[in-house]
């Protein structure tokens, strides 16, 4: 029954799998589309991505090579045989993927990815600048504590989109010098930053691709995220959680500048009630 050549359809399918695998591998050259890294923990995130890319790339290529090879080789007829495996053979065969995948995947989580995860969610470094970002449909409001270095009291009842967007309490002396900006975030280069995250309405997600930062903002909870910008430049702040019809438009600007320039800029900002 065995014929020398596989039917055209088998060759085509095998070729398809080979081309698919090759193109997929090539396509991951899109790794160069990862935005430039501008935060301290960013390279840890990228390292995790690259690690998984290599591991899955190898598995994917080998798997598809075998798949294509089998399709090509075993489509020429021949005599199949009925040979179920004994449980022992099955189990020993299973060891290979079980061990390989367990090790490969947990190394990614614990060894490669773990340190960056701890950096993001660990202890707040000393000397961190604390700022507040308030998400609302469909704007980012940014608050700096002002000259007294303290955030004033806010209340939802005081929020007025035009006259008091974050709901500062005028009666609190710490509030009057708080600086409130629409959609613009200024950060000092090299200094750790802690961001208090609040939402006034629905879920939003505070995402700055270049800083490898993404943190959902849950209304009713005071969220937080921390990072250290290490590269001066102008970046974009995006909302990464569907928040309504204007979600796609909920963008903001992030300016990372050398610390002295940042300090000068901050001094020039008038408090909301000044």
């Amino acid at each position: 029954m065995e014929t020398a050549r596989p039917p055209a359809s088998a060759s085509a399918l095998a070729a398809f799998f080979v081309v698919l695998a090759a193109l997929t591998a090539l396509g991951f050259a899109a790794i160069s589309w990862l935005p430039v890294v501008a935060s301290e923990h960013g390279p840890g995130v990228d390292r995790t991505i690259v690690y998984i890319l290599v591991v899955t790339g190898v598995l994917f290529l080998v798997g598809h090579a075998v798949l294509a090879g089998f399709v090509w080789r075993y489509s020429r007829g021949g005599t199949p045989e009925y040979r179920p495996l004994s449980p022992k053979v099955e189990w020993s065969w299973a060891l290979l993927p079980v061990l390989a995948l367990t090790v490969a995947s947990e190394v990614g989580v614990l060894v490669i990815g773990g340190p960056a995860w701890s950096q993001i969610y660990g202890e707040t470094p000393a000397g961190a600048l604390e700022i507040e970002v308030v998400g609302k449909q469909f704007e980012w409001l940014v608050r700096y504590p002002g000259k007294d270095g303290r955030f004033g009291r806010t209340a939802a009842e005081l929020v007025h989109d035009v006259r008091n967007p974050v709901g500062l309490d005028k009666k609190d002396p710490a509030a009057s010098d708080d600086v409130v900006l629409r959609g613009a975030l200024h950060l000092p280069e090299g200094r750790p930053v802690v961001v208090r995250l609040r939402s006034l309405d629905v879920l939003h997600s505070f995402a700055i691709p270049e800083l490898r930062v993404k943190q959902d903002i849950v209304p009713g909870h005071l969220g937080r995220t921390q990072f250290r910008p290490v590269r001066a430049g102008s970046y974009e702040l995006a909302c990464a959680e569907l928040c309504g019809l204007g979600h796609y438009r909920m963008s903001g600007k992030v300016v990372v500048e050398p610390a002295p320039e940042f300090e000068r800029w901050l001094r020039e900002q008038a408090g909301w009630f000044e």
Binding site: G44, V45, T48, I52, T56, F60, L67, W117, S205, E241
Partner: peptide, 25 residues
């Protein structure tokens, strides 16, 4: 079978918390 390969392996990027930080949404 091929799609399981792509889908299954792609899951690693999202199941690993650190890389999901970038890929989420």
């Amino acid at each position: 079978v091929s799609a399981i390969g792509i889908g299954g392996l792609g899951g690693l990027y999202l199941g690993t918390a650190t890389s999901d930080l970038y890929f989420h949404d």
